[in-house]
Design a binder for these strands. Structure first.
Length: 337
DNA sequence: CAATCCCGCCATGAT
DNA sequence: ATCATGGCGGGATTG
């Protein structure tokens, strides 16, 4: 049946609209409301209008922070933002137990003149790495992303440096594999993680004063002294940010499922194409309009950016449509199963 | 050019 | 074998 050739990036293709960060924001907004406790991957992909593969990315990263927890095949349990602080505490402790602070001495300047001075910049892998005799039938489990996410967090939580570059992180978490390729791959993954973290406000992009190179800084969320008990129940845990929901109604193939669902609706995705609000991509939200600097009280990192339409009415309308559409699709999908 | 990072092929594990 | 997961990196986009 030939390939629908998904690579047909029409004239109106905007990479930003498909970023993991945005997807994460939408994902979070979609599930951060009462009554939610179970998340189905299929439904999720459907609601958000993305391929399944992407949901795996989001889910794996969020699970590393405690927002989600795998329940069973295809099903995750929503733990919510409230679970983050606890997860971070644990991560920080683990990170300290292992010597994560030695990984990132000070990635600041120095650039290529990295002195390979002793230390043990390596193996972020817990457990044994002893593999005498070829393969180790060990846990193939948790090979990356999820683990990488946690290690990335540990670097921030255990390091003194107030900002870390992805290259530095990759270097630190990569043991000694200075393979150009390994580095490249690792950095690619870190970009993915950094994107969702940024969208959640956990980290923020900054510039290294010295080299001018991009780096990330952990926002003031990291618990503060005083331990014992989960405590810090956040007095402001009801930081629910309501706004417009948006769906990535991609006008391309997205689900290999038969078009049964599709033909079932007369007003298929085609018609769903923004009516009054033209698709002129001029109103794309901006994650961080480089206007960094002193941001107001970054108390709550979860005040996600809301991709708003300059026109409130339009936004509301869109929201309404989205809700209707979402629940409809969800129901239809469920029944179909 | 360098920094980003989307997209989806395809290996691998579960059933 | 089929289906669920999710490494991995080519190469398109952005800055």
């Amino acid at each position: 049946m030939a390939s629908r050739d998904s690579r047909t990036k029409d004239a109106f293709y905007c990479r930003k609209e498909k970023s993991l960060g945005l997807l994460c924001t939408n994902f979070l907004r979609l599930y951060d409301r009462e009554g939610v406790d179970s998340i189905g991957l299929d439904a999720s992909a459907l609601q958000l209008g993305v391929e399944r593969r992407r949901i795996y990315d989001i889910v794996n990263i969020l699970e590393g922070i405690g927002v989600l927890q795998k329940k069973e095949k295809n099903q995750y349990t929503w733990k919510g933002y409230a679970a983050i602080s606890g997860a971070l505490e644990v991560l920080k402790e683990q990170g300290q137990k292992e010597e994560f602070h030695t990984y990132i001495a000070n990635v600041s300047n120095e650039k290529e003149h990295n002195l390979n001075s002793d230390s043990k910049t390596e193996c972020p892998d817990k457990c044994s790495k002893s593999d005498k005799s070829g393969e180790s039938p060990k846990h193939k489990r948790e090979k990356s992303l999820g683990l990488l996410t946690q290690n990335f967090v540990k670097l921030f939580l255990c390091s003194e440096a107030d900002f870390i570059s992805l290259d530095g992180a990759a270097l630190a978490l990569l043991g000694d594999s200075h393979d150009r390729t390994a580095m490249r791959t690792k950095v690619r993954r870190l970009y993915d993680i950094a994107n969702v973290f940024s969208s959640m406000g956990l980290i923020e992009k900054v510039r290294d004063p010295g080299s001018g190179k991009p780096a990330f800084r952990w926002t003031s969320v990291g618990r503060s002294g005083n331990g014992s008990s989960i405590a810090s129940e956040d007095k402001n845990r009801k930081r629910r940010a309501f706004g417009a929901d948006i769906t990535n109604t991609s006008v391309k193939k997205c689900n290999t499922n038969n078009a049964l669902t599709e033909q079932h609706q007369k007003c298929s995705s085609k018609d769903f194409v923004f009516g009054p609000f033209s698709p002129n991509v001029t109103t794309v939200w901006n994650p961080e309009t480089r206007q960094d600097g002193q941001s107001q009280n970054s108390d709550s990192p979860f005040c996600a950016y809301r991709p708003q339409y300059s026109n409130k009415a339009v936004g509301d309308l869109f929201h309404h449509y989205t809700e209707a559409w979402s629940s409809w699709r969800g129901e239809a999908n469920e029944k179909q199963q």
